[in-house]
Design a binder for these strands. Structure first.
Lengths: 252, 252
DNA sequence: TAGTGGTCTAGACCACTAA
DNA sequence: TAGTGGTCTAGACCACTAA
């Protein structure tokens, strides 16, 4: 402790910056344990709440993860590359493969839970599908798990009238999935739109994706259009942002 | 206080959930002031640090913003729709318009600061541009401001040798911008790749984008390829995620 | 069982905002 | 100038982890 306050910066920020620099310098590698609250209290002569605040900064930045009873650890990052356009080409699902198999690249990406129900369409979805307010939709909710870690929540909406009696209302939609079945119905998807947002997760999303503090979700809303330009499906997805890179390739 | 602990949930989370429900019920609209620390201390009989923790939850979720000396306020959200593919069509920049003008849609989107320099290429960028390690690149750093609020930081890299002596090394690159100048050089971009990630901002990004706590950044890395399939430009962007929706339209 | 992070108290002082 | 959020202390007890 040289003077009263060498820098015009709060103590907790100085401690956080110091730890961050140490991580970036490789002093603490991915998965390694950082000095804990007690270490920081002793090393910097601060109160517990101040040491916690410093660690809180790194957690909020998503570069560190606290495990209660064990310590604070450096996080690592090995994302899935999701090729937005090729994965949805007709040759993919037309050949009977599922879309998300294209993302896996040899890793273990599986559907963990499927839930199919008929419900009233949320207002925004009804609008996008060009259905009257309060129309019935078939809702397919799925969770995708990569190497044991949930990475994606997907909720797909289709007009109930359109898909009644087809495998789309079943947990297993058959080879090529929903899009292949829409083709069977004469409503082949020929154009897609994906909208991407990002924000911090809701409590439920954080729970279902097992997200540590400081990790945002990416929200992808995909709309599939048939040859007439009519929207046939809306799929709302919440992605663990530490697990994904979204890639789009296109011509000028 | 009815019992010792009615729910098996920390006080600060209960208070946060209560406030969140009130916001969602419309009791506090966008821009309105929430009960502050002192109000919460009195209303719930808790210590200052506990009241702060409750407000901290809402800040971390990005639905609330604290203004020192003034109070805690509900945040609002009116995003820019960025059409990933059309905005980069040749008809856009070929006609002398700038790409980002396509995003503005009547709002006041301006370049706030431009910085051009020749530097050594960062290793990843050198790799993407297929340049030898340590090669010189022209680096163009810009900040975009929408209605007075910074929303986008852009850093563009081009081989120094390629662009030497052209307007690309000047702050103002002329009508149609960098891509039109690359066309002049016989290296017209014909294909683009955009990679999207999301994470919490670094301290510098949060500062330059004036981001409140709890708002992530979206990172877009665009690579432009010429007719030979050679990468001619890499553009790394950091976007205020509360200001943008990214949209991609494509065929099956 | 020793150590860890998580929650919480009851104070204090500060810079800042807005009336 | 009164009120606000931001920082900080020096304690306490808890559930949990890992040896």
């Amino acid at each position: 402790m040289s003077g009263r306050n060498t820098e015009r910066q709060p103590k907790y920020q100085r401690i956080a910056a110091e730890l961050r620099a140490a991580i970036e310098a490789g002093e603490y590698g991915p998965g390694e344990r950082l000095p804990g609250e007690n270490d920081l209290m002793a090393a910097h002569g601060v109160a517990r709440m101040t040491a916690r605040q410093a660690l809180g900064v790194l957690q909020a930045q998503g570069i560190v993860e606290a495990r209660k009873g064990a310590g604070v650890f450096v996080r690592d990052f090995k994302p899935i590359r999701r090729r937005g356009i090729e994965r949805l080409s007709h040759s993919q699902w037309g050949s009977g493969r599922s879309i998300w198999e294209a993302d896996a690249e040899g890793r273990d990406l599986v559907v963990d839970s499927v839930e199919v129900a008929e419900e009233e369409a949320p207002a925004v979805v009804a609008g996008m599908l060009d259905l009257p307010d309060g129309a019935r939709v078939c809702v397919r909710r799925r969770r995708f798990v990569l190497d044991g870690k949930p990475v994606l929540l997907s909720t797909s909406y289709l007009a109930a009238e359109l898909v009644a009696g087809t495998p789309i209302t079943q947990p297993d939609t058959g080879p090529g999935g929903t899009y292949a079945r829409l083709e069977d119905l004469g409503r082949k998807p020929v154009r897609f739109r994906e909208e991407i947002r990002s924000r911090m997760p809701s409590a439920e999303e954080a729970d279902r994706l097992a997200l540590p503090a400081g990790v945002p979700v990416m929200l992808v809303v995909r709309t599939a259009f048939d040859e007439e330009g009519v929207a046939v499906e809306v799929n709302e997805m919440a992605l663990d942002s530490s697990a994904y890179i979204l890639e789009y390739d296109f011509e000028a």
